[in-house]
């Protein structure tokens, strides 16, 4: 499949460019196809290519020394990843994996530098994209830094627990994030931490509180 100019028009990096400009940029873009689970980038390795997601979705994540995964972002069509290391020359700050079949458009650093020189509007667009990413990561860092989020999640679980008859409303992780004043990624991490502590069990479509008293203690400890 050839790189589509129509698609490039929808990419924030190239917002406001003429069709002729997009055609010239298209010439340096290459396509990469991935299957579910394939790694696009590995944290710490040298970075040479900026990627745009053309179709499908990828997850950007870091892995701790203990092997715990923290998702930083999910990148959807039109969005970019690996921006930071392309611009600062450092290694990949995180790993990136295909969540399903994915088509990526890649631009090598040397080509991107030429694009920026030839099309100053792209530099302004890049500033906006990076600012948006900084804002997202800032809120993520804030929540991951404050351990009381886990207490808020524990409190929500206790307040919404039913007896299994379906009488209580079901909650999505997004609902819990909104209630806890955090982002979905942090709720997912908190639930997994609570499971590791042995106070809840994550089942197919349920969260089972296995130790109510311990969960109450956690709420008390964090508030």
């Amino acid at each position: 499949m050839a790189v589509q100019v129509e698609f490039l028009k929808s990419v924030p990096y190239f917002c406001g460019l003429s069709i002729a400009e997009l055609h010239s940029i298209k010439e340096v873009i290459f396509e990469k196809t991935l299957q579910r689970g394939e790694l696009v980038l590995i944290e710490g390795e040298p970075a040479e290519v900026l990627y745009l997601v053309a179709s499908g979705a990828v997850k950007v994540f870091k892995t701790s020394a203990e092997g715990k995964e923290q998702i930083l972002n999910i990148v959807r069509p039109g969005e970019s990843f690996n921006d930071v290391s392309i611009f600062d020359g450092g290694p990949n700050p995180a790993s990136v994996q295909a969540m399903g079949p994915v088509v990526l458009y890649g631009i090598r650093r040397s080509d991107l530098e030429i694009i920026l020189r030839d099309h100053p509007l792209v530099a302004l667009n890049v500033t906006k994209v990076l600012a948006g990413q900084a804002r997202h990561l800032g809120s993520l860092v804030e929540d991951l830094s404050f351990r009381h989020v886990i207490g808020r999640v524990a409190k929500i679980l206790l307040e919404h627990a039913g007896d299994g008859t379906g009488a209580r409303p079901r909650l999505t992780q997004q609902d819990m994030a909104a209630m806890a004043g955090t982002v979905r990624e942090v709720v997912g991490r908190s639930l997994k931490a609570l499971e590791e502590e042995g106070v809840i069990r994550l089942e197919r479509h349920r969260i089972v509180i296995t130790d109510k008293e311990a969960l109450k203690d956690m709420v008390a400890a964090y508030f």
Partner: peptide
């Protein structure tokens, strides 16, 4: 697949697909 998946909800850009969870006490 026997995973605690919810990936459809994760990727949905409009919030159209949701994976609600029941919370129960054992």
């Amino acid at each position: 697949c026997n995973r605690w998946c919810t990936q459809c909800e994760d990727v949905c850009p409009t919030g159209a697909i949701r994976w609600p969870l029941e919370i129960v006490i054992e």
